[in-house]
């Protein structure tokens, strides 16, 4: 799981690297490298790559693609309609022969069109992206997931104990362990007080979001939150925290979203928050500082 998905890509790069070394100078990114390779990597290489070679077919490099399967060539340069590879990706969902198999998501219209244009253009390894002006752009590749917090799973027992003792919830943001935990108090706002925050210090690095709206948290609690270094989102709406308390959050390196709606934060506090290093979204509707700002002509 951890390294295998990158292996084929690495090999493809390697193969391309060797290929590119032999190319004329000035060949920037080729269409194959930029479009076709990533499409095959994404949809096909799990079954047609170094680990498995279904039907004797590998699709993890240009050379393999052109070599074809046991039964022969899968790509006929210039002839998309006659290319088995193209036929397989254009069959309707549910067809016995459609690729990829096993109900995996089919290629998007844009991806199919890129493959088609590439074959029609001679299935070249060297043509540049600029030579395919009609090729639709592909969706941005999903950025590799970044761990926002250490894996919480080894500490599940401790987390469960804290939930029970403190009457709060510590909820995984998603099934990806690196997405961290949410501190949730919506069902028991009274329990989200300064004492609770102090008790959470041992697992604070796991918490990425803290939902403390409508809790009795005070500036003293914010002093503790100032050490929750992985915090990205903090909701303090309808609390009594003030502009002074907010200062304690200044050192949080990742805090992106801060909700101070209906809090007691003054204009100076809002100014302070605006200067936080990572802050991108700030709300302070109904807070004295905001009301004052709004009232100014």
């Amino acid at each position: 799981m951890a390294s295998s998905p990158d292996l084929p890509r690495f090999r493809r790069r390697l193969a391309l690297g060797i290929l590119l070394a032999a190319l004329p100078l000035g060949a920037e990114t080729t269409f194959y490298q930029d479009r076709i390779g990533p499409i095959l990597d994404r949809h096909c290489v799990v079954c047609h790559g170094p680990e498995k070679q279904k039907a004797g077919l590998r699709l993890d490099s240009f050379a393999w693609v052109m070599k074809g399967a046991e039964s022969g060539a899968m790509v006929l340069p210039g002839n998309a309609a006659g290319s088995e590879l193209y036929r397989r990706i254009t069959l309707p969902a549910g067809d016995d022969e459609v690729m990829p198999t096993d109900g995996k998501p089919l290629l998007s219209r844009e991806e199919i069109r890129n493959v088609e244009l590439w074959i029609l253009g001679g299935a070249s390894a060297t043509k540049g992206v600029a030579e395919f002006p009609g090729a639709p752009a592909l969706g941005r590749p999903k950025p590799a997931p970044v761990a926002l917090a250490p894996d919480w799973r080894p500490r599940a027992d401790e987390i469960r104990r804290l939930e029970t003792e403190l009457g709060i919830r510590l909820v995984p943001r998603s099934q990806q362990a690196g997405d961290g935990l949410i501190l949730r108090t919506a069902g028991s706002p009274r329990r989200g007080d300064d004492a609770t925050l102090a008790r959470l210090a041992p697992i604070a690095e796991l918490i990425v979001e803290a939902e403390l709206a409508r809790t009795p948290v005070t500036d003293a609690g914010l002093a503790a939150l100032g050490r929750w270094t992985n915090l990205r989102s903090l909701d303090l709406s309808r609390t009594r925290v003030t502009g002074q308390g907010v200062a304690a959050l200044a050192s949080l390196p990742h805090l992106e979203a801060l909700n101070l709606t209906d809090s007691a934060v003054d204009a100076a506090g809002i100014q302070r928050a605006r200067a936080f290093p990572a802050l991108r979204r700030l709300w302070a509707f109904g807070a004295p500082g905001m009301v004052a700002t709004e009232a100014r002509p």
Partner: peptide
């Protein structure tokens, strides 16, 4: 777990949670 019974699903306490963030 310190949660009211209602928070559990009838088929067991398993709530999947989001597949991704």
């Amino acid at each position: 777990l310190g949660r009211p019974l209602a928070a559990q699903t009838a088929a067991g306490p398993a709530v999947l949670g989001p597949h991704y963030a």
